[in-house]
């Protein structure tokens, strides 16, 4: 009885294995666009894993102020709301730019990319002013473990936004110089994924770093 069952299982397994092979042979290979999107998504996930280490460090150290200022003394909710609005709108503009590129519409692509860049730059400006203000108050990254982990986490995100802005300008220049070529379009796609991922990480930051601290 049990042998018969095992035989049947092997049979079913083999058939489905063959079925999978036939199905795979019938389907054409995924397009380069899908493959490069997947590859870049793997990179982004590794970046998210790296950020999660910074988040873990911050979550562990956020109370260790060493007698120095805590988040409640330093954070300004209005500025955080403004930063969040800038990044969310720039993420939206980036999506519009990717549609503009697919539609080969210069006006939509360059217009939306410019909006993305300006909103991203506004975010960075607000963040740099926040950092400068904190350092001027003597609350720099060397003051306490809380501030070290704060500057590491938020600064790492800011660094990503800075690099993203450079990439954004490069993509505008490449489309201008080379047109909406298939390989350039794949880079535009990857840039979009990168920019949207930065917004996802910012959601984590404004929740864990700012709102949690002010809710205490």
């Amino acid at each position: 009885m049990s042998i018969a069952l095992e035989d049947a299982r092997i049979d079913v397994g083999r058939r489905s294995y063959l079925g999978l092979r036939i199905e795979h042979a019938e389907r054409s290979l995924a397009s380069k666009r899908v493959i490069s999107g997947f590859g870049f998504w793997i990179f982004l996930l590794s970046d998210i894993v790296m950020f999660s280490a910074f988040f873990a460090a911050y979550a562990v150290l956020s109370g260790e102020t060493a007698g120095g200022p805590s988040g409640k003394d330093l954070f300004d909710l209005n500025r955080v709301a403004l930063e969040t609005a800038c990044l969310l709108l720039s993420s939206f503009a980036c999506g519009v730019a990717s549609i503009g590129a697919r539609a080969r519409s210069d006006f939509m692509y360059y217009g939306a990319m410019t909006a993305t860049a300006l909103l991203g730059a506004a975010f960075l400006f607000l963040e740099i002013r926040e950092f400068a203000g904190m350092i001027a108050l003597g609350a720099g990254p060397t003051r306490s473990a809380f501030l070290t982990s704060f500057f590491a986490l938020v600064g790492c995100h800011g660094l990503h936004v800075t690099l993203g802005l450079l990439w954004l300008l490069t993509m505008m220049a490449q489309v201008f110089a080379k047109g909406y070529r298939a390989d350039i379009m794949r880079r535009v796609l990857c840039f979009g994924l990168f920019w949207h991922t930065l917004d996802i990480i910012w959601v984590g930051i404004f929740t864990v770093v700012y709102l949690m601290e002010l809710a205490k």
């Binding site: 666009r33 549609i99 539609a103 080969r104 404004f206």
Partner: peptide, 30 residues
């Protein structure tokens, strides 16, 4: 390949609508 071709007017409208829905929901939750 599918997805590499030029988007037409209907696709543009659909795409923009998708991003607008996302923006609306994200703003609401924020």
């Amino acid at each position: 390949a599918p997805g590499d071709e030029r988007a037409d007017g209907r696709e543009i409208a659909e795409g923009i609508r998708g991003y607008l829905v996302g923006l609306g929901l994200a703003t609401l939750i924020t």
